[in-house]
Design a protein around this nucleic acid. Structure first.
Lengths: 227, 227
DNA sequence: CGGGCTTTTGAGGTGTGTCAACTGTAGTGG
DNA sequence: CCACTACAGTTGACACACCTCAAAAGCCCG
């Protein structure tokens, strides 16, 4: 990782609002800030690889990190996509094991790293940190379960529709928004080949969805829900 | 749940060896034992349903519990299968939320339940419990990731082969063993329709695998690995 | 021996991955 | 500013893996 450094004022601010640190007491926050290292990742850089000994905990400050698993013959399957504020769940290995997947910056990103041994140490003394970890993991497990079920129950257009609805405000009225990352990333997140995502979008065109570049317009959320 | 009761000697013993309690200090074990309730579930009984307020933590003492998600039109997708010693991850909701899936006993089972509020309370004071929870969740997240990737990368015969290999002792020699549950359960766990599992087994018959009822014989593990 | 359940086998439909070619877009350098 | 390149996205053709439905066969337990 390029230019490892202590967190500055800007980074401390972002860290404070991240999922992991936002629920901690002041002493725990201070202890974690103490051991935090900030790094700037260029796009496509690896954070860690499947099988390596796990010695670091990672949290995304800005950008996106893609976590995927590899096939013997080199094919990749995305398993989770982390954005600003997210703790990278695959890097939480609390009993000194190995990373179970590979993490790669999907775009230029700012990452906070914590030495795992020291995190374990602090968490062993401060229950609020241990609970924050458990909370983060519990949420991620729920998301992983949702992905699994979604994969097995819904077709590509349905998964895309559900994703779009999740980005909409709750009310049932027309909305526009920008996709937060490129479509190939979204395809991977939804467990689709990029071509399948493209076809899903063009099928949804008949159901009040309009896509141009990263701009999405949804005319009738209720119609989407019925796909 | 039928016949809720305090844990007896036999149940305490089993609980002590369970994933959650085995790593705790004596005081935490005592505190958890204090609030444990044991219940006997007949096959097909629900432990909790998707969307219900989450107020209990569950751990399997014997038998198997299937956790699945439901489609609007009633189709089910299995998301995890828990056996003896397992903490039911979907029941770990630490911020007073709702269950994200449904849990059902796959066969007559013995279950330990803990009041979630009290668990949170204890974990807030005792870091070893909070860490044990985080550890359990981290392991389950890794398994969920593995399932996701497996679904997306491998065909049905490959997934079955990998499952069988995981049941084998590490050495590369012929082995026999019994499937721990019925095939329809295994199919669900692997994300397959029962018919697909059956077909996968008959395809593997040509690769040194022999199945009769729940008895599996594997002639050449190395050959399986090459599927 | 009969009922119910689980598993197997068969036939047909379809969703999605793969490969390939084409289009669009963005960024680079003359 | 315009060509040029590189990459992202689209579209089409095809294969095949898996789901669905249906029916037969096997198994367990009364």
């Amino acid at each position: 990782m390029n230019r490892l450094m202590k967190p500055g004022a800007r980074e401390r601010e972002t860290l404070l609002n991240s999922g992991l640190l936002s629920a901690l007491g002041v002493e725990s926050v201070a202890a974690m800030m103490e051991i935090a290292a900030i790094g700037n990742l260029p796009a496509r850089q690896m954070l860690f690889r499947e099988g390596e000994p796990a010695d670091m905990l990672h949290s995304v400050l800005s950008g996106y990190v893609r976590v995927y698993k590899l096939d013997p013959d080199g094919r990749e399957a995305d398993v989770e996509l982390y954005g600003p504020g997210d703790l990278i769940g695959a890097s939480v290995v609390l009993d000194g094991g190995r990373y179970g997947a590979t993490a790669q910056a999907a775009e230029p990103s700012l990452i906070a790293r914590f030495d795992l041994k020291r995190v374990r140490d602090i968490a062993g003394r401060r229950p609020d940190l241990a609970m924050a970890l458990a909370n983060a993991l519990s949420g991620q497990l729920a998301r992983a379960f949702a992905s699994l079920a979604d994969d097995r129950l819904h077709t590509a257009p349905q998964r895309v529709a559900r994703y779009l609805l999740a980005q909409c405000p709750a009310e049932d009225k027309a909305t526009s928004f920008r996709l937060p990352y490129q479509k190939s990333l979204l395809a991977g997140k939804l467990g689709l080949a990029p071509e399948a995502l493209s076809r899903a979008f063009s099928m949804l065109r008949g159901h009040s969805v309009n896509v141009r570049g990263r701009l999405v317009h949804i005319g009738d959320p209720e119609a989407l829900r019925r796909i």
